[in-house]
Amino acid sequence: MKVLVIIEHDNANVKQSSFSTITAAKKISDSVEALVLGKGLDLVIDELKKSDYLKKIYKIDNELFENPLAENLSKAIQKFAEGSDYTHILSPSSTFGKNMSPKLSALMDVQQISDITKIISDDTFERPIYAGNAIATVKSNDPIKIITVRSTCFEPCALTSNVDVENLTVNIDKNNSVSFVNYDKSKSDRPELTSAKIVISGGRGMQNGENFRLLEGIADKLGAAMGASRAAVDAGFVPNDWQVGQTGKIVAPDLYIAVGISGAIQHIAGIKDSKYIACINKDEEAPIFNYSDYGLVGDLFELLPKLEEKL
């Protein structure tokens, strides 16, 4: 068995999710290789080649891959994979992997296994369905397994090695029916939501966007990422990409602090793999208390300044 990991990066840094995907690959086989496609990959390779568990890195540096257009990526990966003997092709289950990997599976006539959270054997995996309200154990009968990996379920691999890198060229036609226009990166000095050790989120109880300042002070002291419930996002308190839950981001930090969030099942689906959950809510009947290790009943506008002071 031989596993290929598709590396997600931004032509400067390797995404943490890639290192988690490498760990997942290692659980399937000792023979793990990585493929990186991009433009100007020197920094990415410097970082990636330290990855434990990797036997080899293949690099395709080409302007076709400057932006992650799934049309070009999936074709190139298919060409590369069909010339080799990989039994598994893994990508992180980020928007990058979700966009690209099903195209690869269609090109190779394979039924992809999406968003795995556990590896039972080389052909059997666990994956959440119904927003994590049920867990399915599925066995793939395809000769090649194409998989996306939920990165919060696998620790990132350690970075103590020095892996061989091979340069490859690729011969595919540029897809002219799609072009990249721009990428509008959300500006934030805080850690990314999906990889932060501590996350503090606000819900409808925050009442408006201004009041999220009360969470900022705490986030600063804890080095935490900031998130929100769908209700807070829909109400326009904070940007879309802060949304944690079934249809937003799935997080699994060491500590998740839910403030003014009632705890709808769709929100719980996005946080329940957190090591510890704490909540502050004035309604002691709110469902969030059933999922919290530590619940504090009271008015968040009184409690948050106190909490910031005590930290």
Binding site: T95, V178, S179, F180, V181, Y183, K185, D241, K249
Partner: peptide, 10 residues
């Protein structure tokens, strides 16, 4: 809607 921001394609 992609991780970390918004991407526009044509």
């Amino acid at each position: 809607e992609v991780d970390g921001g918004l991407e526009t394609v044509k």
